[in-house]
Computed example of a mutant assay.
Amino acid sequence: MPRNRPGALRRAPRTPIPRTRTVPPPEHIPGLSPRTGLAIHRAEHERDGHYLFPGATARALHRYREFLAQPGRRPLYPRTSVCPACPGCGLDDVRTARDTLAEVLPLLPPGARAELARTLRPLDHRYRLRTLPDPRTEAEAPWWHRRLGEGAEGW
């Protein structure tokens, strides 16, 4: 077995080159695997959209779950956010949060897309059960926008 030469052993050790990241590491999204979280993180940083920004999917999923976790059996009414034009404040409206989730879904690879869709399926079912249909909305709107809402969030 070859061995190191004495001169190579006496030479000063090299200092490793520090690794720098231009993008911070992804945050853990509860209920999703780290692989799916990484795929979402990449999609949020590679694509720009009105509802899509770094961390938007985690916030939107949290908001969607928070809205549906309200106790009781009475109907829930989504509320418009106070500042719907602002991407961060727009997530106060659960319909905008669901828009964000719908926007990131097609950008994901097949495995991550399937896992996020499996996570959304029971939430969507609960949303349909706890909200009432609004016959006045346009038929072209996504189904989560065709539910009765009231007022503005925070008023």
Rank of each mutant, 00 (worst) to 15 (best):
S81L: 02
D93E: 09
H62K: 11
F53E: 01
D99V: 05
Q70D: 10
L61P: 01
T57E: 08
A97Q: 05
D99E: 13
R79D: 08
V82D: 13
A43F: 03
R79P: 07
I40L: 14
D99N: 15
D48G: 15
V82G: 11
R74H: 12
G55K: 05
P87S: 12
P71Q: 12
R65K: 13
R59S: 13
D99A: 11
T96D: 08
R98H: 06
Q70R: 15
G55H: 02
P87W: 06
E44L: 09
A97M: 07
R73M: 07
I40N: 00
F67H: 01
H50R: 15
A69F: 04
H62P: 00
E44G: 07
R95M: 06
T96Q: 14
Y77D: 02
R63D: 09
H50D: 11
Y51G: 02
T80D: 07
R65G: 08
L91N: 03
P84C: 01
R63G: 05
H50K: 10
G88K: 09
F53R: 07
L76K: 04
L68S: 00
T96L: 09
T100K: 01
R73G: 14
C89R: 14
L61A: 00
E46F: 08
I40K: 02
L52W: 05
H45L: 01
H62D: 14
C83Y: 12
Q70V: 15
H45S: 04
R59M: 14
T80Y: 04
A85K: 11
R98G: 03
H62W: 09
L68Y: 07
